[in-house]
Amino acid sequence: MPETGSATTVKTVRELLDELAGLEDPKVRAVNERHGDDHGVNLSKLRAIAKRLKTQQELAVGLWATGDTAARLLTLLVCRPKAFEEGELDAMMRDARAPKVQDWLVNYVVKKSPHAEALRVVWLGDKDPVVAGAGWALTADRVVKKPEGLDLAGLLDVVEAEMRGAPDRLQWAMNTCLAQIGIVHPEYRARAVAIGERLGVLKDYPTSAGCTSPYAPVWIAEMVRRRGRES
């Protein structure tokens, strides 16, 4: 990413780091650290700062460069997604090690970028499971919104062969893609359910009351039921 371009931006970055440090809550940090996120800022308060700042691309670049997790989350709320080059987004994903930063980068920035499809293709088979997981997350999104040209049968082949042994974050993204194929594409539903049942991935995942299990066969059945009720 480019260097920050003005003394004003640098000063504001420092001021914002101080503000974020002042919002640090040990209880919030303890919860976040259980999920791999090294920050203790309440996300509602972080979003309030972003709302105040509005879109500021130069500031966003400066915040990202600090390497601070809370600052990087703020980056992803105040940046201009279409302003990033493909190589910048690739570098950001490879440098983003906190799960929440990875998720927000994909959902708030990459999905809105004109480079989303190119990055999806590059990331899908990456050796880094976090980067590959981002590729599968983008693929799941395309399964729902723009499936034309996707080899859905081929995706199911890869899921069937590789999902059970995949690292957690990659496994989660592959499972999401499996479920979305089964939900959105009736012609592949029976196979998607069968793969989910055979692999058993996330079958015992703890699910709060009122929430849908991420276990693909249950997830598919529930979403299809809801769609039928709404149609």
Rank of each mutant, 00 (worst) to 15 (best):
L53S: 05
R94Y: 05
V109Y: 13
V41S: 07
G87L: 06
A65P: 05
N107A: 07
V28H: 03
W219S: 15
A134C: 08
T9H: 00
R169F: 13
A179Q: 08
M223A: 15
G125V: 08
E88L: 08
P167M: 12
V61S: 10
T12M: 14
L150C: 13
G154E: 14
F84R: 02
A137M: 09
S6Q: 06
G87E: 10
R191P: 02
A140T: 01
V101F: 11
I195F: 10
V31Y: 14
P217T: 09
R226K: 15
A21P: 00
M163K: 05
P167N: 00
Y108R: 13
Q56R: 15
R94S: 09
V218H: 11
V109Q: 03
A221L: 08
V184A: 15
E19M: 06
A50C: 12
K100P: 00
S44M: 08
R14D: 15
V144P: 03
V41E: 06
P147M: 00
A91C: 03
A132P: 03
L156V: 02
A7I: 04
M163S: 05
E187C: 00
R198P: 04
L178P: 03
A83M: 02
V144D: 10
D18Q: 11
R47D: 13
V61W: 12
S213R: 03
E3D: 14
D168F: 11
G135N: 05
K11Q: 11
L16D: 05
D128F: 09
A70Y: 01
G5H: 06
E24V: 00
L77P: 08
L105Y: 12
A60E: 14
G133E: 10
M174V: 04
D103P: 02
Y205D: 12
P167Q: 10
V143S: 03
D25Q: 11
P81K: 10
L43H: 01
D25F: 07
E197M: 09
M93D: 04
A48Q: 08
